[in-house]
């Protein structure tokens, strides 16, 4: 499992997001795992990952304040660990 968020990322193809007042549900049809994204802004970031080129670019384009980047990166690492987001191109080293 990647320890860093380098490179380009996107929502995994087996995962669907359902908007909710608190953020979104994320359901992985492959693993039948349900996860919760606990802020609408995080949902926006995740949706912007594909095509943003980098995680930082997605954070910027969603308007995440600089002082919150660390917290959002933690959240994204957690989503990466559980397979909700995946690296666009598998990299040879972690």
């Amino acid at each position: 499992m990647p320890a860093t968020l380098a490179g380009s990322w996107r929502l995994s193809s087996s995962v669907s997001l359902r908007p909710e007042p608190f953020g979104a549900l994320a359901y992985d049809f492959a693993t039948r795992q349900l996860s919760f994204l606990k802020s609408p802004l995080l949902v926006d970031v995740v949706r912007r990952l594909a095509g943003a080129g980098s995680v930082d670019a997605a954070l910027d384009s969603a308007g995440v304040p600089a002082e919150q980047h660390a917290a959002y990166l933690d959240a994204l690492r957690s989503l990466a660990r559980t397979g909700i987001i995946t690296a666009d191109h598998p990299r040879s080293s972690p």
């Binding site: 359902r18 908007p19 909710e20 007042p21 608190f22 549900l25 919760f36 606990k38």
Partner: peptide, 10 residues
């Protein structure tokens, strides 16, 4: 989350 769930979901 549990406090959010108390108010129901879409």
């Amino acid at each position: 989350l549990v406090d959010q769930f108390e108010f129901g979901l879409d």
